[in-house]
Design a protein around this nucleic acid. Sequence first.
DNA 1: TATGTTTGCTTAATGCCTCTAAATAATCTA
DNA 2: TAGATTATTTAGAGGCATTAAGCAAACATA
Lengths: 241, 241
Amino acid sequence: MTAGTGSRRERLRKATLDEIHGAVRTLLVEQGPGAVTINAVARQVGMSGPALYHYYASHDELVGAVTAGFLRELATAMEQARETRAEEPVGRRIVAVCRAMRAWAIAHPAEFGWIFAGPISPANRRPESTRHRAGQRFEQILLDLTVELWQTRPFPVPEPDELPESLRTQLAAYSASIDGRLPLEAAHVFLGCWTRLYGLLCMEILHQLDFAYTDLEPVFEECLRELIGALGLDDPDQPAA
Amino acid sequence: MTAGTGSRRERLRKATLDEIHGAVRTLLVEQGPGAVTINAVARQVGMSGPALYHYYASHDELVGAVTAGFLRELATAMEQARETRAEEPVGRRIVAVCRAMRAWAIAHPAEFGWIFAGPISPANRRPESTRHRAGQRFEQILLDLTVELWQTRPFPVPEPDELPESLRTQLAAYSASIDGRLPLEAAHVFLGCWTRLYGLLCMEILHQLDFAYTDLEPVFEECLRELIGALGLDDPDQPAA
DNA sequence: TATGTTTGCTTAATGCCTCTAAATAATCTA
DNA sequence: TAGATTATTTAGAGGCATTAAGCAAACATA
């Protein structure tokens, strides 16, 4: 064997898969989601139609696989931002990861739009789907950082008694689902931050705010500042207060 | 003429249009967005295929018209909530309108999802599209109430000097686009409220928060309380403080 | 009331799509 | 080298968007 793992066949197959993913991406970016058809993709990679079914069992599966790849790419970009700042305090890492998330979305709007608003079929929400797993990794990055922050320098949280009963129940379930790494009141703060950040980004990329803004960078930065405040951090862009 | 306006033919045409919209809605709700095809809709109303082209020039146009109808329905529900409380203070009307917005979205998730993530084609974003006009009416309801609040009982706003230059420019343009009914610093507060509220609702309906919540009602209510605080209002659920 | 236009609808046909089936060529394995 | 596996092809069924051509009922009007 000269390079990589697996047999020659496996390497060729992987190369073809990469080419297929690339073709899907090209079609998506250049001609929109509707242009991503099995036939068009096959044409792009130089095979004819049904050959693609040796790689994916259906159009849905192809779309799901590519979407999961986009999510992985986004997660990797965020992890990279985290790793290159491994020595800095957790507050700066959080900010860097959030900015990396938006930077990827801005650089790849078609892909990000597809992740969010593309295949909303129930199948993609079942826990065993590739899509779902890739999404979990994405969500987990900020969760991990928040847990680290919580353990090293707990942020202000509401009294659980102040939260409505039904919310407390749900937060308890979520807290359990992350192995109790955050107590429910801290999970509440985390989820609030996540919702605002991710929600703002989705609205931006899906053009729901075009009626008012042409560039949401300062809005995102303000959101980030509020988030930093909610997490009880000093302004991480200032070296020291 | 026995009833309504217009000739017999016009009435019949309108009835057929209503039937078509109903068929689209049924297909959307029962079988998802992918089931809304020209042929399926035609079958549902008992005509065969191309007959629909006497009512809409293309699939896109049909979808756009139905989507605009959904937006009108949502806007009407919000306006109704406002009108039935015409005598109450503006703070309560704002809360009622926001709750009406979520109530409609919860009652019609497929339709709301379609409004938001359905036809994201550039054509639907051009100002002359029916879709865009219906969207404007929707956004305007809370804007009108916010303007009324601003004129009767101004809410706290940031100093314009504290806002970054690029944000100030954009807010000035938006303020002008609403005929200066809100100065840019008040527009900033309004847009922040709108973004959070609408963003949260979109995330909920599009299942982006299923990993943590099963029922977002208490989350929405908390968001509403924060919004009320940002607008300097007393808790509108309490008769008097 | 007879006539011509408008309107609503039908069938036929084109070209795209998804996906299945059967057949063929190339490549690995033993 | 023979058999199994894999990659790929063509043929075809069935669906969809859309256009074209044509028919029949309803309408307007002279």
